[in-house]
Amino acid sequence: MEEIREAIGIDKATTSGSLIFIEEHHHSDANFVLQAIIAHCKEKNHMLNLVLFHNTFGHFHNVGMKLGYNLKKDLNNTVNVIEPLKVVSKNIHLQNSDNIKENLEFDITNKSTHLVNQLVKIIKDECISKAKEMSEQKVYLIIDDLSHLFDVGLNVQDIWYFIRCIRSFINDEPLLTLCVTSHVFDSSLEFCETNIIANVLKHSADLVIVVRPLETGQSREISGKLAVYWKSESERLRFKWSEEMTYLYKLHDREVKLFAPGSSRIM
């Protein structure tokens, strides 16, 4: 994971108060970038808040064990997790039982704006308030993946409102780094809501990481393409980074190898 951290530059540049956006194209999996950011947090002992719409916490823990860190050990201490998947499942159980009136923390039967408010409140209570208690510590808030909010019935306006709310946390908490993943689809077919939100986030993010599959088909040697864009000119000049850095990557069970485009030599 060292290579990925070096490539995206989070081990050198200052990320506090910034937004990192990971754009995951269809037929690719950006989970390895998230794992690299988590590995960085664990190494530097930063506080980690995970909002998991796509994978379970068990998945992140098991991958973490392979990579050399234990997330469960620090659960509810420096690692906080919100799993909407679990709440959705609990919702369905309750609909089948007699306890329908029980108050749910994240009820997707609610109207969309109320749902967003609920979600923001949970994140604020679970993560931001705990971060304030540890005032000197850097905090990462990771949202994986935002496109699933469309799946539960929200529209562009609702999600834009959600983004504005979570962006406001950066103002409250200057040591906070916001990291958002979103899946995008081949939008040549129609007006695609997820792609609109991804474009907005790309525009406003300080660091954009794009994970794409190979355009030319499959390869045994390469899993896909990784592109890194640092918006901040001062950071780019400081570390002599170009505006766009493109790599090829190969996923392995316990590591990710990076290659320069057109070469097979490990960077």
């Binding site: 037929h27 998945h59 098991n62 991958v63 045994r220 899993s223 069970d253």
Partner: peptide, 18 residues
Amino acid sequence: VKKLPAFNTLVSQESLYS
């Protein structure tokens, strides 16, 4: 085979034949 599962691992089982 368009997608293969990646549970508890970084990489999904590679498709041996396309």
